[in-house]
Design a protein around this nucleic acid. Sequence first.
RNA 1: GCGCGGUUAGCUCAGUGGUAGAGCACUACACUGACACUGUAGGGGUCGACAGUUCAAACCUGUCACCGCGCACCA
Length: 962
Amino acid sequence: MPEIPKTYEPQAIEEKWYAEWLEKGFFTANPHSTKEPYSIVIPPPNVTGVLTLGHVLNNTIQDILARRARMLGREVLWLPGTDHAGIATQNVVEKSLRKAGTMKHRDDLGREKLVEKIWEWKEEYGGKILKQLRALGASCDWSRTRFTMDPEYSVCVQRVFVDLYKKGLIYRGKRMVNWCPVALTALSDEEVIMKPTNGFLTYFKVEVVESPGTFLTIATTRPETIPGDTAIAVNPNDPRYAHLIGKHVRRPLPLENQAAIPIVAEESIDIAFGTGVLKVTPAHDKADFEIGQRHQLESIEVIDPRGVMDALAGGDLEGLDRFEARKKVVEMLGEMGSLEKEDPYQNNVGYSERADVVVEPRLSEQWFLKYPSVEQARRCVEQPEIRQTEERVPDGKPLGAHSLAGKLGLQPAPSTQVSLTDLLSNVNEKECKMHFYPVRWAKVYDHWLGGLQDWCISRQLWWGHRIPVWYHQETGEVYCGLEAPGDGSDAVNKSQESPWKQDPDVLDTWFSSWLWPFATMGWPEKTPELAKFYPTTDLVTGPDIIFFWVARMIMAGYEWMGEMPFKNVYFTGIIRDKQGRKMSKSLGNSPDPLDIIAQYGADALRFGVMRSAPLGADILFDEKNVELGRNFCTKLWNAARFRQMYEGAGSEIEGEINPTLLTSDDRWILLRLDVAIREVSTALDEYRFSDAANALYRFFWSEYCDWYLEASKAALGRVPLPTEVPMSAAEVAAAYPLRANTLAVIDFILAHTLRLFHPFLPFITEELWESLGFRDDLPARQGGDTIMFAHWPKPFEEDFKQHYGLTSEAEKAANAKYDTVLAGRNLRSTYNIPSNKRVRFVLQPTGDLLPHDAEVLKILLNAEALDIAADYAAPQGTPTNLTPLGHLYLPLEGLIDLDAERERLSKEIAKVTDELAKVRAKLANPGFAEKVPAAVFDEHRQRERNWQEKLGQLQKLLANLS
RNA sequence: GCGCGGUUAGCUCAGUGGUAGAGCACUACACUGACACUGUAGGGGUCGACAGUUCAAACCUGUCACCGCGCACCA
């Protein structure tokens, strides 16, 4: 097997393994496999996208899930792809074409040409992000890469449109829509972001036509729309104005047409706001439009699609931008003497999500969709109340598993915490539930579904799925279908232009994205992929697209597949910089993940990000975390090198461990491994990735390296072996059985930890899996050719533990030893013994001590010698600490600083006295003894005795000093 | 206005009733034969405030304050 180089150089290793994985087809899903399926569809990034830290977070999580699923023996499909992202992509390409001088305006090229150019751009530059994902180690099945405008995918989109049209859920209508004056298209409500915006509340007065000399004052934030006003509205219950209803006022603008407009009654008017008088502009305000409908008011459009005032706004305003016009109108009102005042005012204004400009409500002809399968979508997501594991009953005691199990007629497993979720999973109702992580998003989801407005699905763009509707130019007939309709005459007459013209609009990008989980798998055919992998298992995405995408996918899933599209949805947090600010290009706080990978390695980035990504919280990205990941990889690397210094690496695993030769250190680390396996598995089952990463970090670094490897040096002895003649591994094993057994334990630990780490650190674990020889003796697809399919470690069985003596006594024995070490090291530093000075310790043992354990103590204490002397008579003032194994002395032969020792002891006594007082106060509390559970009571009594004993000894020591 | 999340060490965060924890940062010592991308030891917190429940509260209940987010919206 290859020797492990001194330093870990991730770049070469990562490239090598990724190429190998691809070549061997390890990522390719087999829909005909008999293995249980696991599937996940990537949230398709924009085809124009480049990798950001947000993607790193999201896709690392998906990769961890996919890799672990493979190790659990599942047939894994992780399906990648990109989204055509209508507005964004058209913008990007138009910009580059303008820059290249190919065109000034899209009309220069025309629709067909521009779309062609966008396709060209897509083929050449699009999907860059997917290549970047490979650098991260993403184990996607690239053979199944999809694009939302693939021909087959487009057919799905059209089919769905036609289907909904036939079901009567799609209609066309002239409605108030959110209009983006930059993108020149309608937007859905979800694409409008409300932002508090500073402006003015302008007060101006108008004269009542029927009562000259009577004026009404109106407060408005949008004076530029005055020329479009066709009424004034007041609340009929407002005594100030009720008598004026039915009369008219003179509209001040445009000057050319100061029409008399009616005063109408509207219950919805807030009497307390402004002056209680509302100007009504049906053409440029959603609420005003509705008032207009109720009172059959005229609609006067005074702002054109670009946000520029038109002719109807009057000669003074025509051609002005709407915001310039706003200033101009105020000026004009002032000149007329109509302006009363302008108050600074902050209100919420809608902005276009993409272009970040103020959206203009505008009346226009659009296609709308009444959402399908809403009730199913709403019912299928598990709500937080159900997830609650404890319900309180009046006496304050948790309603535990037993009573609940009783209700459900189930027997809980003894001594294990049974959650309500587990119990309910046995109940039918529960079977069909989809789980959100964190569950609180389910409430947000439900709330949105409860107040759905029809979805405006048409966009006035060129890049996207064309609406499959044709209008007959002569008859006005409307046709909706997959193919353009024939004109009824014979097709021979090809040169003649068809009288059918297709609707020029394209569909909202999300109208294709919502089909992603099944359109990517070949729907509407009954493909093996759909049969095997739908519904998908997990979806990993950001909560910001819960309405845009997640909710709509769920509805689409029910509507066309009759089933939920995924079983679990994991919502990541948002990646922020270390000051908590959002990553943004303008702030320059958004590092390029590829730079980070080049500097630290992909594994380091993955581990660093995952370690700081708790479920449901935002992630503050700090390069320090990546550094920590890199350091950890180095640690792993060196721990493997340590193993390789000794003979026979990799050739003896599991079965080779001889239980009779196990030391307490061996038993201890095996027990810690068992705990780590359980913790990591449970954490991953519950999508607590940072907990899993932390548990692994702690186990490998703090337990395995810091304690076990150091202790193992006692059993391993020196390298090279103290023999002249070279020996084979088997001969060494025969000659040094303890050493061989320790190496077997090390191999066992490494073989398990590499597998536990693989989902997080795919590259370095694969490299070491090979270097340490763990491939040998394993069947090809179970770790023999790659760690990717090695079995995920299982917690130890009881009989395994019994066989190897993995008992709590063994653990206690090791812990006693380690506590003794800590006490000794503490003595060293208290007396300022330099770390490299080897000193002599004396232990006055309270019980038996194995020679091997004494050797371990000596090594861990970095002692020159450790004397075991039951009858040791310590010279006066010899520094000592009470340890679980007895008194440990640090004889310093006359070098003792009595004052320092006195001070140390006094400090210690103060601490112990304090603790003793605390526990005594509790015990003295009336009611404590009666009400507290026996175990807790005993534990407190024991604690009291321990502190008491320790205090006595400390006091004795202090007394000996004087 | 309604809803959700948060407030624990200098920083980022674990911790769902019984002796306050981790990582980073900081201090001291040491380049000891896997590792200075390291090791060892150490300092540092009245757990946002107030009140309540309890033998016992960081944890449960209530009120408030501040921070963040979502939804709705009155011009």
